[in-house]
Design a protein around this nucleic acid. Sequence first.
RNA 1: CGGGGCGUAGCGUAGUGGCUAGCGCGCCUGCUUUGGGAGCAGGAGAUCGGGAGUUCGAAUCUCCCCGCCCCGACCA
Length: 577
Amino acid sequence: MLRMSTLFLRTLRDDPADAEVPSHRLLVRAGYIRRVAAGIYSWLPLGVITLRNIENVVREEMNNAGFQEVHFPAMLPKDPYEQTNRWTEYGPDLFRLQDRKGTDYLLGPTHEEMFTLMVKGEYSSYKDLPLSLYQIQTKYRDEARPRSGIIRGREFVMKDSYSFDLTDEGLVESYQKHRAAYIKTFDRLGMKYNIVSAVAGAMGGSSSEEFLAPCPTGEDTYVLCPSCGYAANVEAMTTKVAAGDASSVGALEVFDSPNTPTIDTLVELLNSKFGPGHTGASTLKNVMLMADETAISVLVPGDREVDIKRLQANMPGVNEIRVFEEQDFAKFPGLVKGYIGPQDAKKSGIVVYADPRIAPGTAWITGANAKDKHARNVVNGRDFEVDHYIEAVVVREGDSCPKCDTAVVIDRAIEIGHIFQLGRKYADALNLTVLDQNGKSQVVTMGSYGIGVSRAVAAIAEQTHDEIGLSWPVSVAPAKVHVVVAGKDDALFEAGEKLAADLEGRGISVMLDDRRSTSPGVKFKDAELIGIPMIVVVGKALENGNVEVRVRKSGEKQEIAVGSAVEEIAKTLATLA
RNA sequence: CGGGGCGUAGCGUAGUGGCUAGCGCGCCUGCUUUGGGAGCAGGAGAUCGGGAGUUCGAAUCUCCCCGCCCCGACCA
């Protein structure tokens, strides 16, 4: 039983000056966390209990799925990270330190290497697979910009699991088991979330999904279809476009277009020259980029911008993409800035990528590769060839859902889980092999799965709080019932003590506000701020043999007889769970 | 890393060159009070982020450093 009279807790009446987002403000005000340094927080008793509750739900669901818990140090030797090249690749985000002999160590940002090596040390047969291991550990990342309190810290608690399989099919199965376990976990934690397709990106591997908890203060944006529920990371959003029919389109026609180096000026000219109705979307923009050492042209409708991050995510193997600079144009004299068209790309040796909207058979107005000249009736497949189609434009609210064609919305969320099929990258680098049925050595394939445990505290707070304070789901609250003794008579305190003890006897955890000289108003405010799901007031109703039972979230109140209070509270709690 | 803002008691803040740095919350003592952040009286608590400088005099002006927050870049 938690007692307010002795609990190590001081709630704050004012919002802390350095906190902006609700979870940060309220967790500090209600006495769950305190800032120690940028992105580094201490946990007070209420915070520790809440964090542990979440950990335990995660742990139970991992165990239920048949995954086994292990534990690694947070401080790790450099060597394994050199073997996978991450000592270098991770860059300044890695906390590095040295021991007295000058040997390099790091604070683990994630533990793929260690898990791989652990399995390598113990197992060597296909018969031992599949295997899934997990740990709940503190991770360290020297983020360039920690923010939003506990949402993005430099030290945070993460549950990370890794699956080990002989075959690709096995990996898919392990992946699905994790996915199912995550669904159960986040459901139990009372969170709202969307499972969103992501791009596997630099980590390699084929399939990846993120669990995103929608909330206005989230730092990730993603695409959501309000009709069919399709959800995708902007990088992973796809575009469904029908092929065009250009059979009735006239021949390519070059026309004079002086002083039209931008889309806007071009559209103006088109409307006066060929009649109204032309928009940026009628034109074809050629965005020149350098992908590592290759010159590429990305074709997008004139009213669209290229999202370089998205482009890069869809060009695996390419390290750096940058826009064309003067010296690049100098190498391609055929390119006339402001008047580039894809018609001569082949001749210039430029690789042509195109947004799917530039479908085969569609006709466009674009540059004629000569100063002050544009061309119209430029048909894809007839007048130019596209080498690769690629998702590269900035996704906009109102774009079509690839599943059901409804206009999508752009939503914000906090990433609370990420699952992906890693493949053999780490097993290859660290030489994790097992013998197969034929006695042949096979590289193991891996999956990696994370849940931000401390971040979940903040995400849940973000999703459940209201104007007056926190309001936890039953599964994570630091206690299930908050018994407030409102008054000064000993009889009230005795009744409060008894009720609290009876509830605890039923296995219902209780916070008892047994402070003698604190006024009822303060106790009510504190209870609402702290956010325990049920508040029971032992006060003036006791004259009639009643206590007042309140549901924190809905604000519903009812008086019930002391004698049946435990039963009634247990029943109400069950409906809240 | 670029841009912006901030740093005064545990928390929130006032104080643009002049006396002993002010107020609210919280904390301590006493009395009163107890259903919505009580009242009165007394009290403790501050190297004004740090250093250097200007000045008769610096929380206040100048320079350097440190720390923190926000936007962006970046980031399972």
